[in-house]
């Protein structure tokens, strides 16, 4: 519509010339519009073929018998795959693990990222700030497989530098990914190492546009540091907190690569998160159950992400 208006404004049709002139105006306006569809075509094609079609296919596959999923005419079995995973006790323990891990990872990552961002933002840290920022962000651009491979070996009982270091300073040994009790923590630390810098950068971007006068006013009023943090700084950081929360929830609910590299879901299922569990079904060509699990996880992610978004919107007055 806008283009039609501006095209007409740019060269008003000569009055009294009749329908032909008007028709050519329309034609030109129409061509102006079609060019936008032309621009969007590659993007639309890629989004549909490698984004929307797979999602539709995935949901459809979750209603088919696995053995026929790749056949031209799959056999539909209704909710049988969903019933099958709901009967599977391992599915529920995997779901519980995923939720617990996601909650812990979100809190740990955002907590560390916020603390580090506040530290980097502090006027006390005048020199070397760009170095500390760089150190924090380097893991974010490091290929995750490479980072997790190094962490896997850092934890190793005989090769690992961590084990040797703890021994050196006389601290008790850390089981790392070898012990069911510590595997989740070990995975969490490795993911924190890789991701925290990303969330810290978002916090820093928000801190850069904060109203400094408010903090100064709080100082003058004699607010204690924790009062300043909770009543002045955190409310100002609300946009970054909401963005990071949504992003981190999506990120950690689908934790996958770190499990593939470091634990393969073990030891004794201690890190068998839902996306890895679903992948194992996929690997055994049990496409029906795998996509049913994927759909359940998708619903959880969608619910969590939109829930946080809605909360964030409601709080904004």
């Amino acid at each position: 519509m806008q283009a039609v208006a501006s095209a007409t404004l740019a060269s008003p049709p000569p009055l009294g010339e009749g329908g032909w002139g008007e028709g050519s105006q329309l034609l030109r306006a129409w061509r102006r519009e079609t060019v936008f569809y032309l621009f969007a075509t590659p993007f639309a094609a890629l989004t549909i073929v490698f984004g929307l079609w797979p999602i539709v296919l995935s949901v459809m596959t979750s209603f088919t018998a696995s053995a026929t999923a790749l056949k031209p005419v799959p056999i539909y079995v209704g909710f049988a795959n969903y019933a099958a995973i709901l009967r599977d006790p391992l599915f529920f323990s995997s779901l519980r693990l995923t939720l617990v891990y996601a909650a812990l990872a979100v809190v740990a990552n955002l907590g560390v990222a916020l603390a580090y961002a506040l530290l980097l933002d502090s006027p006390l840290l005048a020199r070397g700030r760009s170095f500390f920022k760089l150190a924090m962000f380097l893991p974010v651009v490091t290929p995750d497989v490479a980072g997790y491979v190094v962490w896997r070996w850092l934890y190793d009982q005989s090769f690992g530098a961590l084990t040797a270091f703890l021994h050196l300073v006389g601290m008790p040994a850390f089981g790392g990914v070898a012990s069911p009790a510590t595997a989740m923590l070990a995975v969490l630390i490795a993911e924190l190492w890789l991701h925290a810098g990303f969330y810290a950068v978002i916090f820093l971007a928000n801190l850069a546009v904060c109203e400094r006068a408010l903090e100064e006013a709080a100082d003058i009023d004699g607010a204690r540091p924790w009062q300043k943090l909770f009543y002045v700084v955190l409310p100002e950081l609300r946009p970054a907190i909401v963005i990071n929360l949504v992003y981190a929830l999506i990120q950690f609910l689908k934790t996958f690569t770190v499990v593939v590299v470091m634990t393969k879901g073990g030891p004794s299922g201690a890190t068998n998160f839902l996306s890895y569990y679903a992948y194992q079904f996929f690997d055994q060509a049990r496409y029906g159950e795998a996509t049913a699990m994927a759909t359940v996880l998708f619903a959880i992610v969608l619910l969590a992400a939109t829930g946080v978004c809605a909360l964030g919107e409601r709080g904004r007055v």
Binding site: G51, T61, I250, Y279, A294, L297, F298
Partner: peptide, 16 residues
């Protein structure tokens, strides 16, 4: 497509 857990999108992408 962004919301769909990326790792799980790859399974149906295999089919596509």
């Amino acid at each position: 497509t962004m919301m769909y857990p990326y790792m799980l999108l790859v399974i149906p992408v295999y089919i596509v």
